[in-house]
Amino acid sequence: MDIIVCIKQVPDTTEVKINPETNTLIREGVPSIVNPFDENAVEAALQLKEKHGGKVTVITMGPPQAAEALKTTIAMGADEVVLVSDRAFAGSDTWATSYTLSQTIKKLGKFDLILCGKQAIDGDTAQVGPGIAEWLGIPQVTFAVKVEVNDSKLTVERMLEEVNEKVECPLPAVITVVKQMNEPRLPSLKGMMRAKKAEIKTLSAAEIAGDPKNLGLNGSPTNVVRIFTPPPKGGGEILAGEPDEIADKLIAKIRERKII
């Protein structure tokens, strides 16, 4: 089966700093990595390929340096990679990004399955995966923790807050994955050598036939008004003492509040 994985290059920290004036991320001096959930998606794709055969193509939209993120996936075992890069894409929100990626996927042609991480650790929107499915008009299953393929039918286990949900859907489809799904493999030496030599295929806005009204800042309806750190949750109370004492104190407090 032909699998496409969409990845994003993100700053290597979950505590990114925000420029208060522009409300954008300060990326200088922060090393870049493949978005961790996207590594889970690459791993899932490689495992499906190992089981069913086929090809894993990884794509990303980003500046030229995002080629490094693609090389990381080659080192893991991706067969092909495509960088979609154009000044016209600058300032893309999730609408424009999912449009751009879907146009790229259309340009690439044949595919059976699209995998994405559930969200990026910098923007945290979890919208691009579902957006791609909408633009392509195919089913989407989000927060997958397990994926099985049987005769062009997918069985997906979704990880929800309280329960896991098992759903079936036809191929092709878009799946977004959670980190509990697998442990992304480390690169191999052969993969790293292949990555070093790899020439990264790059597509421009014109090459993916992108409609300018859906690209970049102009094609992005989202307007970030303000980014701020929410006030911390009210301070909890830590009970100290021997386990027996703590248990007694805890029960007293629960009674006090008439919870039981």
Partner: peptide, 18 residues
């Protein structure tokens, strides 16, 4: 060489993680 740096870094990475 670049290949040797790769070997060294990869061995370190695997050792640190595993």
């Amino acid at each position: 060489t670049e290949e040797q740096q790769m070997i060294r870094d990869l061995a370190r990475k695997v050792a640190l993680e595993k």
